[in-house]
Computed example of a mutant assay.
Amino acid sequence: MQIGSFRFVPPWWGVALTIVGVIVLSALGVWQIERAHYKQRLVAAHRAAEAAGPQPLRITPADLKAGRGARRGYRYIARGHYDTAHQLLLSDQVEGTRTGYRVWTPLVLDSGVRIMVDRGWVPKTDGRSAAKPDPAAPTGAVRIRGYWRDFPQPSLRFGDARQCGLSGWPRALNYPDTATVRCQYAAPVADGLLLLDPSAPGGFVRDWREDPIGLRPWAHYIYASQWFLMALVAVIILVVVNSKRRA
């Protein structure tokens, strides 16, 4: 192929590798743009949640069957009573240099639906044979305030990690999903977790300074431009390396 005073003679394998590279790099760029669009929707939802302020939390069994429930990122005021006899412990949670548990206590709403309340972190007792902690909770009717989020997910999950059929309370679980939490109880359980407000009594170490959004949309656009630029550089390298000036 003649390009001005240059002759472009790339090997077939060079063209093939460049095409594959351009496709892969462009796909990564498109994926980052999609992530940016998702983050834009997440930012808008977070701002709406902040503007709405705390809302009464009302969930019925019919809501659960219809797939309705609390909204992620919103702050709620819940009324009910703690079921302290059936607590869950999220295992292997680190606070500073110490390992411990996050205490999840069911709050039974007036509708009978249970919501899991994360009351904070407690240290693990030293010794392999040490009993699991079973922290006390306020008794009687309570009115609590908190932030709603999804159940935390591990970085990697292999196969079916459902942990049902356990006996005894409290039960220590390793990043359970919604189905795993629900199979611990005979009563209906909401999909999600209420992080107990740091100023509320009846809790433990609570450091909820987590960023619900992560990378902002503009950062994903920057990453997308980098992937597209790398695809362009791959084409330029192919042309420059395989172009020779005519005698």
Rank of each mutant, 00 (worst) to 15 (best):
I236K: 12
G112A: 11
V235G: 05
V22G: 07
A51K: 14
R41F: 01
R171M: 06
T99P: 00
P10F: 00
P138I: 06
V24A: 15
Y38M: 13
L109Q: 15
R149V: 12
L194N: 03
V103Y: 07
G4P: 01
V108R: 15
Q184S: 05
D177Q: 04
W148I: 04
Y175L: 12
G21D: 03
A179F: 04
V240Y: 11
R75T: 12
D92Y: 13
V24C: 09
A16V: 12
H37R: 15
P201C: 07
Y101K: 07
Y223A: 08
S167D: 14
P198V: 08
R71N: 05
S129P: 00
D134G: 08
V117K: 06
W121R: 05
F204H: 15
G146W: 06
R75A: 13
V233W: 09
D160C: 03
G14W: 01
R182C: 00
P154M: 08
V9G: 00
R98Q: 15
Q55M: 13
A200Y: 04
D197M: 05
G73F: 07
A219W: 05
R75L: 02
F6H: 13
D160Y: 05
A231I: 02
I19T: 12
A27D: 06
R75F: 14
Y147F: 15
L17W: 11
V15M: 14
A137G: 09
V240S: 02
A200V: 06
G112H: 10
R75G: 02
V43W: 04
R128S: 06
A36W: 01
G21P: 04
P188K: 13
L232Y: 01
L90C: 00
G69F: 12
H37V: 08
V235P: 01
G73L: 04
T139Q: 15
